[in-house]
Each structure stands twice: as C-alpha cells, then as structure tokens.
C-alpha cells in the first residue's frame, strides 16, 4: 500500500530524513518509534503534503501512485489521513460543518454521491457511539477551546468518520491520560481491517500495549535503524534508544 524508498527530506535547509525506507502492506499496523529529533513528525508531515518539507531524493508510492505529486486534499481523497500531533484551532468554523464539508469534498473527488445532512448525521451518530464520545464537541468550533485530550479524541473521531485507507498517527498518545489513551487505541483497533493500514508514530511504548503493531521500526537520525515485531517495543522501553545506537555502531563495525 505504501512504499517509501531512500527518502531524503530537508526542512529549513537542514536534512532531517536521510534515506528512510519503509514498506507498509494493507492490513498492517506499523509503529515508528524513536528519540526526539529523529524525524518522526517530519515523516508524517511529508506524507500528508505539508509545505516547507523539501524532498531531495527518494520516492513515496501509495496505492500505485506517486504520493509526492499530489496536493494535500488529493492525498486525503485518496485515503491518506494524518492525525496531527498538534491539532489546529479554527475559530468560527463549526466542527460539524467542517467534517461534512471534508467528507463530501473527498466523496466528490472520488466520484461518489455527497451525503445530505440527514445521512451525514446518521453516520456521525454511529461513529460517536463506537468511540463513546459526547456530541457536544460537534457543536463547537474546530478544536477551539478543546483540552489536549479532546483535541486528540477529535482527531480519532475524524479518522473514524473519514475512513481513510492509510492512517498516520503522529504522537497521538502524547499528553494523554490513561482513559484517553485507551479510547484512542479502541478507536484504532475498531478500524483495523484487511484493507486499511496504520502508521503509528510514538515516542513511548505505552500506546503499543493497547494497539499491538505487526511491525516496529526504530527511527534514529533520519533513518530506520532497527525493524522487528511487537516485542521490539518493550525492549526499547527497557534499554532506551541508546541501546539501538550502540547496536547500530556495533553492526557497522
């Protein structure tokens, strides 16, 4: 579904990703762990199409297409979703209106019929019920005045509603208490399916106790330095990222 080869990315003139390669198959959950500054968030932003990230080398193929050529909205319509590490507050734009506009824009782009407000609300209620969310947050402006936890829940709610094929969670667990963390994990687990993939970017192992990944990668200094199964995460937690760096040096020698 997603194939990244030898990706080099510069941000403000500084090389952040230095030859990252990664392949995610449909149905899989990949976790990307790594120390601060390793390039984790850069990866998410590049995949979603944020400006200011200059790809100097390498390729990203998603569902047979060159992802890097697409505008952010085209990527969304093609099924790519980024749950933001810092969701943006948009005063004056009602959450429901925003979600309906987004969903219908995606459907229109894909040549599907747009949902009227009744159909849309029905879908919203279904998703709210699955995620145990209150509909109160729908009546407010997008993320405005939301607590950190509410913002992250809103990201997961948007993901549930938009039903992407590739969901990238950029440190969605940061700053969450255990209940919110479980809710995020439940949301992801409920959506796991053979034709959907997840890229879970995280600094800590904690989230991976609830979302058990198929593959765990360690990202350090702009490259994947270690790949393993779910058991890699607790090892990292135990030994710290320095352990990976040492192994890498030992391997190089």
């Amino acid at each position: 579904m997603l194939k990244i080869e030898n990706l080099h990315v510069r941000v403000a003139g500084k090389e952040i990703l230095k030859g990252l390669s990664l392949e995610v198959k449909a149905g899989q959950v990949h976790a990307i762990m790594g120390p601060n500054g390793a390039g984790k968030s850069t990866l998410g932003n590049v995949l979603a199409g944020r400006e200011g990230y200059e790809v100097t080398q390498g390729s990203v193929v998603y569902a047979g297409k060159n992802l890097l050529e697409l505008e952010p909205e085209e990527r969304a319509a093609a099924g790519v979703f980024l749950a933001f590490q810092y969701p943006v507050e948009i005063p004056g734009v009602n959450n429901t209106y925003f979600l309906r506009t987004a969903l219908n824009a995606q459907r229109k782009h894909r040549g599907e019929a747009e949902l009227d407000s009744m159909q849309f609300l029905k879908r919203v209620r279904e998703k709210l019920a699955v995620l145990h969310l209150k509909d109160e947050l729908l009546h407010r402006a997008v993320n405005e005045g939301f607590s950190g936890g509410e913002k992250k829940r809103n990201e997961i709610f948007q993901m549930a509603l938009l039903e992407p094929r590739l969901a990238i969670l950029d440190e969605t667990d940061s700053g969450l208490d255990i209940d919110a963390l479980k809710m995020v994990a439940d949301g992801v687990n409920a959506m796991r399916s053979p034709d959907r993939a997840f890229l879970v970017v995280t600094h800590y192992q904690r989230l991976l106790d609830y979302i058990v990944p198929d593959v765990v990668h360690v990202l350090a200094d702009g490259r994947i330095v270690e790949t393993g199964d779910a058991s890699l995460a607790p090892k990292l937690e135990e030994h710290g990222y320095a352990w990976v760096a040492e192994r890498k040096l030992a391997g190089a020698a």
Partner: peptide, 13 residues
C-alpha cells in the same frame, strides 16, 4: 497551519 489542516481533511484550497 489551519489551511493545511483543512486541506489534509480533503477540503480543496
């Protein structure tokens, strides 16, 4: 940032 957020959800520029 807000503009990118909206676009990342599928809303054209």
């Amino acid at each position: 940032r807000a503009l990118f957020y909206l676009r990342s959800r599928g809303i054209p520029l």
